[in-house]
Every structure is written in C-alpha cells, then in structure tokens.
Design a protein around this nucleic acid. Structure first.
Lengths: 121, 121
DNA sequence: TGAACATATGAACAAGTATTCATATGATAA
DNA sequence: TTATCATATGAATACTTGTTCATATGTTCA
C-alpha cells in the first residue's frame, strides 16, 4: 500500500483528474477488453474473413475452400482451427471429408452481445 | 491463358464443384475483405479498445490516458497514431495539450456499413 | 492389411506488431 | 531566447502470427 508499490509508468502530470476519475468509473474490465479484442483479432485476417464469408453461403469441406481461395489445404486447415477455437465454426465428419459450417449459436450470441451486426444473410 | 499460368496451390481434388461455384458468385472482393479485416485488426488490440472505450465517455489528452491506463505516454501516442490513421479518432490542440476524441462521423459511417453495432453510448 | 486420400498438426521461417528508449517537435512562459 | 512541458516519432527489441513443409491421423476401399 506504500507509494513504492504503485509505480506509475506515466511520466507526465495529470491534466484533468476529474476526467480521469469519470472515465475510470465506466471502463470495461481488463478481462472484458481482452476477450473482446481477442474476438476482433480473429476477424482481423482476410483469409479468416474469406472463410467465414463463404460459410455464410454454404457448408464446405476443407478441399472446397482451398480450391476456391487457391490456397494450400494446410493453411486453410490452420485457420479453421483458429476459427474453431473461437467457436465461430463447427464441423462434422462424413467419411474422409470434414464439413465446416458456421457455429450459428455462438455467432448469434456474439451479435446478441451487441458488438457486431450483419444486415442480410 | 494456358494451363501453365494458373498454378493451383490446392493439391487436393475438388469435392463439390457446385458449392465452390455457388459460393464464388457471392464472395466479397479481395479489396473489400482486405479493408474490412484491416478495420477489425485495429479493434483487435486491448490498448486500442481501452482508448476507444474511454473516448466514448469523454475527450481526453494523451497524459490523461497514460495516467488512467498506467502506460507510458509514448505507447499511448503510438496507438493513437494507429487510431488516427484508421480515422477512428481526431484531435485538436490547445496550447501544449492535444485533446483526442472519437471521429464520430467516420465511426457513424462504419456503423452505417453494417459491420459494427453498439447498444448505448 | 495396405494403398489412397482428406484433413490435422508440429516445426521453421518470414513478416508484422506493441512497447520501450531516446530524442525531436511544438507550444508556453519566464 | 531559453527552460519546461506535452506530445510525436524513429529505432530497437521481444513477441505474435500466417504460411509452408513435412509428416501424422483417420477413414475408405481394394
């Protein structure tokens, strides 16, 4: 609790303490910001957007996507695993082929939280 | 136009040509995807979200933000320049102090495009 | 069982990025 | 003009990330 424990990185003087205090009261938690930025980060890659955009139209297997985007199967697969971890896509296997689709439930949840919005599908 | 010019990275066989063709007709352009992912990337960092979140509440100077987030002035300044380039924030100088705020006009534009949505302000 | 094929995955590498440090710029006031 | 202060910025660094290559896994079919 001593002054020593609180090492301020900011080397400048506070200009508006009232503003700082006001804003502090309504700041989202660090966890919330982390979670939210994590989600945005997933959307922050053209390949992943491409995949999501395609899956909005139709379920697809990895091979379909690799062909459509003219990318390696491996690269698509890696990105799908990112999307899988973010629970944006799900999949079901039929023999050798794995079909990916949007995880509608979780995506709906994201929209329900109010951060994203899409016009038509 | 020869076969040689079109080198396919995908080493697997197309499973569903009909699906590929269908999806191809409705894919956003590469430019659009690039632009959109670029925007998401800006939101994909907790510090930048923190700044934006704060500015939603009140205009602030760099020093205020550095204090509030307990970060170096330099780091805040660097991130502000990213937000500036994305036209998410604007600023006006009053003497030595630079005040940052949300670029409401451009943000409104982004919302108008239908990608993002916020509940209250 | 083993060959063939779709997909997954670990390691390596190149490219991108957030922060820090040092310093520059721009403004004020003495 | 010079000192001071708020902010900006370039270089360096540590870290993250997207793709590729090689290979593993899992399934089908002969």
């Amino acid at each position: 609790m001593s002054k020593q424990t609180e090492i301020l990185k900011c080397d400048c003087n506070v200009i508006h303490q009232d503003v700082v205090d006001l804003v502090k009261t309504t700041m989202p938690s660090q966890d919330k910001l982390q979670e939210l930025s994590q989600l945005f980060k997933v959307f922050g890659d053209p390949t992943r957007l491409k995949i999501l955009s395609a899956l909005f139209k139709s379920e697809m297997c990895v091979c379909d996507m690799a062909t459509l985007f003219n990318m390696t199967q491996s690269s698509i697969s890696h990105q799908l695993s990112v999307l899988k971890q973010a629970r944006l896509v799900n999949y079901h296997r039929e023999g050798k082929v794995v079909y990916y689709g949007l995880d509608d439930q979780h995506i709906q949840q994201i929209f329900d939280q109010g951060y994203l919005h899409i016009q038509e599908r």
